[in-house]
């Protein structure tokens, strides 16, 4: 090896210098973009490189797809959860909005009736009996609800009366029930009578107003309100509107059919009148 270098060293050095000069020239010619070797090899290796690059790219895209599929799935799940959460919030918002509307209505009504105090309750269940109209509400004597308290809608329309109370629930008999009798007054004419449930009318969700005086001028569409007589109901709660008038042959048993102002069979949230000026005066 030593002899080889001694004998041929000069040629090797010359060859190295020549290669270096050629390489420098090629770099200079290509403007620094590549060397001679690469320039010479490009035409041969380009197709191969392209093929390999394409293969690698496709493999990489498959890998990325598989890798990011998990990410996308996780993201999708996260978005689904978010949508579910937003839907839940929207439902809560809608419920709150409806509750606000009801409370606004009640506020408007209660401002006109400052002597009344209302306790909001929800309807839990309706009676299974086909011969009665009553429902159970979500609060009882623990919330200050007492027997014979009046029950109204947020707009102050009369729904019924508490006829049974436990600590945590109460039974409300509606104004449509056959057992119900309410002292009533026609708002427009001032004529008085008794609004009472009637079984035949109960099937049509109506009630009747009996014991009308012959002198009363009642016309269809008149508003019937509670008279407050007897002390069981506060006065001037709207019961309903006169739907039709039924005349008897003797004229003694005339009665008016009343269409309730409240949607009795559709109520879901009602208000129990837990304090009235009447009960306050009775206590005194």
């Amino acid at each position: 090896m030593k002899d080889f270098i001694t004998k041929k060293g000069i040629y090797i050095a010359i060859a190295a210098v020549v290669i270096a000069i050629i390489a420098a020239v090629s770099v200079a010619i290509s403007g620094g973009r590549g060397d001679l070797a690469s320039m010479l090899s490009q035409p041969f290796f380009r197709p191969l490189r392209s093929a390999v690059t394409a293969l690698v790219d496709s493999l990489e895209s498959i890998y990325n797809y598989m890798y990011s599929y998990d990410e996308m799935e996780a993201e999708n799940q996260e978005l689904r959860n978010r949508v579910a959460q937003l839907e839940e919030e929207y439902r809560e918002y809608t419920q709150m909005s409806q509750e606000v509307d009801r409370l606004r209505e009640l506020l408007g009504f209660s401002e006109t009736r400052e002597e009344l105090k209302f306790t909001p309750v929800s309807v839990i269940s309706w009676t299974a009996s086909n011969f009665a109209s009553s429902f159970t509400i979500s609060r009882g004597s623990n919330a200050g609800i007492e027997l014979y308290d009046a029950v109204v809608t947020s707009t102050g329309y009369l729904v019924g009366q508490v006829t049974g109370v436990t600590a945590s629930s109460a039974t409300v008999t509606t104004i449509l029930d056959t057992t119900m009798s309410i002292g009533a007054r026609v708002y427009e004419s001032g004529g008085t009578g008794v609004a009472q449930g009637d079984f035949q009318l109960f099937l049509d969700s109506k009630l009747k107003m009996s014991y009308l005086s012959e002198d009363d001028e009642i016309i269809i569409g008149d508003t019937v309100v509670t008279s407050g007589e007897g002390g069981l109901f506060p006065s001037d709660l709207v019961i309903g509107y006169v739907d039709s008038l039924v005349a008897s042959s003797s004229g003694l048993d005339d009665y008016a059919i009343i269409r309730p102002a409240a949607d009795i069979n559709g109520v879901t949230d009602v208000y129990v009148v837990t304090e009235t000026a009447i009960s306050g005066s009775e206590v005194q």
Binding site: S129, N130, F131, T178, T179, Q200, L203
Partner: peptide, 24 residues
Amino acid sequence: VQMFPLVFLHGVSILPLIGVVFRQ
């Protein structure tokens, strides 16, 4: 049994009650 209290205590006419009993 359901209609008797209505007939005897509240004087409800028996015919509509029988109709409800039938349908029930």
